[in-house]
Simulated assay, not measured.
Amino acid sequence: MAHDVVVEYSPQTGGFADMHERLTRAVVAKRLATLMGFAYGGEYDCSAQYLGRLYFVPSNTLISLEQAAQLGIAGEHDLFGGLVPYPFVATKIITHPPIEPNVFAPEGWSDTFPRQVHGAGLEGYSVFTSEQTYSAGERLLENGPIRFKPVHATAGRGQRVIRSLTELADALATIDPAELATSGLVLEENLTAVTTYSVGQVRVADLTATYYGSQRLTTDNAGDEVYGGSDLVVARGDFDVLVRLPLPENIRIAVEQARAYDAATSIFPGMFASRRNYDVAQGTNARGQWRSGVLEQSWRMGGATGAEIAALEAFQADPGLEVVHASTFEIYGESQAPPPHATVYFRGTDDRVGLLTKYTVVEVHANTR
């Protein structure tokens, strides 16, 4: 008898992901297998003979249409994450336009996407050469400090606030010109008093859940401020269901911006995703204006995934349940044991980041049955 199997897949990490990330992904894959009624098959083995359907949990957004086809990944029901036609599409570089039309950009670049999401993002530019960087920086600095954002950095790491062209030159000196040409760099207006919201959607089997929430920061074992978890309000259904909830106005703006950003992704040929997450920042710019905009997207397993899966499990267990509140926690150093009802993804000492606890809790949202 054929067995459908959930497998993990690490096309770009080469097996060098942090221990806590590998173990977290294993727990995610096991819970997805249970949710879908599949077996759990561990890491994908290209030499194995799989008799049933495969469902992949990749470590990153897949960036090769050809490789996906070879694996049998043809649509969103074949993976937890997403597939894009070019590597740059998986990064924050797609959010902003170049400094001028028809300047140098990587293969596959289109000005259509940043034009369509203009009202959903902050003021900024995507640059691919030092000349473009200085031109964009000079223009943006006229209105105040800007944020210098390497496109492959996550959780805010590697970013700098730039206040002058001299500081921009110093920051640019840390970027390899070849990497700049292939991956690009984002220069964006800098906000203060910032709150970052997560807006997203997951689709697994016959379940769809759409959510908004906020991120928490914490201090890691090196004393750096890093991601500490997410608190999500998750609705059964699509964006139409989410926007019908009684949302505060700033949350409604964040959701609509993420929704517009998500809809615009249809311009990328061959792209699909079952997990879509958008970071929306709200704060004050240098001119004292309140601003809101999508910073970047994630079409792969992320920090909020534990909460996303907990919501799907709750909806599957109770067909009458419409909204849940789900939270993920990442706690560094010594900490109390997670609550008895929590799903623990990692608790131990990671080789690189040290002592860490990661868990998820879920509860029924008030007055939503």
Rank of each mutant, 00 (worst) to 15 (best):
Q297H: 13
Y278K: 10
A317C: 03
N285Y: 01
V280R: 01
N285E: 04
R275A: 15
I267G: 06
R300F: 10
A304E: 10
E296T: 09
F268Q: 02
G270L: 03
R291I: 00
R287H: 07
E313M: 11
W299Y: 13
D318Q: 06
Q297E: 15
E313T: 11
A286P: 05
S298L: 11
V294S: 03
A317N: 06
M301K: 12
L295T: 04
R275W: 10
Q316M: 13
L295Y: 00
S274N: 10
T284G: 07
S266D: 15
R275G: 04
R300L: 09
N277T: 13
A326L: 05
A273F: 14
D318G: 03
G306Y: 00
G302K: 03
W299C: 04
Q289A: 13
S274L: 13
N277L: 11
S298H: 07
A304Y: 01
A307T: 05
Q297D: 10
F268M: 03
N285F: 02
A264M: 07
V280H: 00
G288W: 10
S298Q: 13
P269V: 05
M301W: 11
R276S: 06
T265W: 12
W290D: 13
E313L: 14
N285C: 07
I267E: 14
N285L: 04
A311N: 06
D318C: 04
A311H: 04
E313I: 12
A273R: 12
A264Q: 04
V280P: 03
L312D: 06
A311K: 02
A326R: 05
G283V: 01
W290G: 08
I309W: 09
G293Y: 02
A263G: 12
I267Q: 14
Y278M: 15
G320V: 06
F315W: 13
R300Y: 10
W290I: 14
E308W: 07
R287Q: 15
Q282I: 08
G270C: 08
Q289D: 14
G288R: 10
N285T: 05
L312Q: 08
A310K: 02
Q297F: 01
A310Q: 02
D318E: 15
R275C: 15
L321K: 00
G302H: 08
N277I: 11
E322K: 09
S298M: 12
S274A: 13
P319Q: 12
E313R: 03
T284M: 12
G303W: 01
S274M: 13
W290E: 15
V323L: 03
I309C: 06
E322D: 13
V280M: 02
G302C: 14
G302F: 04
R275T: 14
R275I: 12
